[in-house]
Design a protein around this nucleic acid. Sequence first.
DNA 1: TACGATAGTTAGATTATCTAACCATTACTA
DNA 2: TAGTAATGGTTAGATAATCTAACTATCGTA
Lengths: 184, 184
Amino acid sequence: MARKTVNESTADQQLPALGIGPYLELMDKTAAQDADRKSSRMGLLMLWLSDNILDVMDVELAPYGITESKLDMLLLLRLHEGRELVTPSAIADRLGIRRASVTALLDWLGKRGWVSREQSAKDRRMIHVGITPEGRALVDQVLPAFWSTCASLLDGLDSEERKVFEKILEKLHQNIETRVGVGR
Amino acid sequence: MARKTVNESTADQQLPALGIGPYLELMDKTAAQDADRKSSRMGLLMLWLSDNILDVMDVELAPYGITESKLDMLLLLRLHEGRELVTPSAIADRLGIRRASVTALLDWLGKRGWVSREQSAKDRRMIHVGITPEGRALVDQVLPAFWSTCASLLDGLDSEERKVFEKILEKLHQNIETRVGVGR
DNA sequence: TACGATAGTTAGATTATCTAACCATTACTA
DNA sequence: TAGTAATGGTTAGATAATCTAACTATCGTA
């Protein structure tokens, strides 16, 4: 179920068709208590979905020449422009990556003219990071596709299902966010 | 929203607290049609969840010294042991990665004595890959934790919600699996 | 004023993939 | 059936995205 880049597939596979099926089967054979099976099954399904959703996103973003973490950075800057002053440290903290990684990311985005760095006058150790007009233009070009991809994940759900799903998502959101030691 | 390894966080951040909130806000400001907002919002939530679910999984697997793709490989072998003969090509196809990557993965797992390679008698180009008793033992040790982590993702949902959620998952599953050009 | 903390960068390592080229073997075809 | 093409697996080398540790400059403070 690992994430993968999209390869052209040639061989006619000898193994059973793809998908999550086999794993579900394996689960049926190995799950401990019978009571847990259903939820294990659903969890597995979620895991599988997660992999695939991120793959979908990668595919959608590829034409724009950026990856998810780069978009994250741009969104973050776009979000804060004209409000808070954004420093690399704050970005690192916010995105849950190391300062060194932020430097690398900013270098990459900067080389393309999408972000700017300016030394702070007050504290000359600090850098204020901003998004350039070109960067903003890129974001504004990417976002519609991004949102519609997000939305398209829900195709086929009727309005009742959507309503419940939304409530569920909020709960899961809680669930994950309060989980200790994960995400930071 | 990029995936990240788990870093110890020190700094008291200047930027608003983490989470998906800011992105939702950004979405509200930039989503095209108003009608799409709700679904964009949910899609975004799903994307965020996906990142985090995979992070959770990474954290759970870390103590066993394996990663998701390595577990995938072992599960695959475990699943087929005593049934189909499994070749590296088939694995590559099944997991959606390149043959070269399978070689690397098998080398890694083989060095630890968890998988075996044996040349086919029929077609001497082929290799039959198997899981060793040690490999099986590892899998059987990891799986309970794996399943319970899967299950724990659903904590807090009541039985009604679970029922609907299951139906929804199936639909999403369909949705993704029939999507062209993704996953393979 | 000197020492420790903080901000950002650099250098180098790691991991997980990929592509392209290669060798051995097998299948096909003229 | 000899010669060519395809297949299965490996190797070599590249790339991307992270990480840690060490470094430089600056700042706050005892």
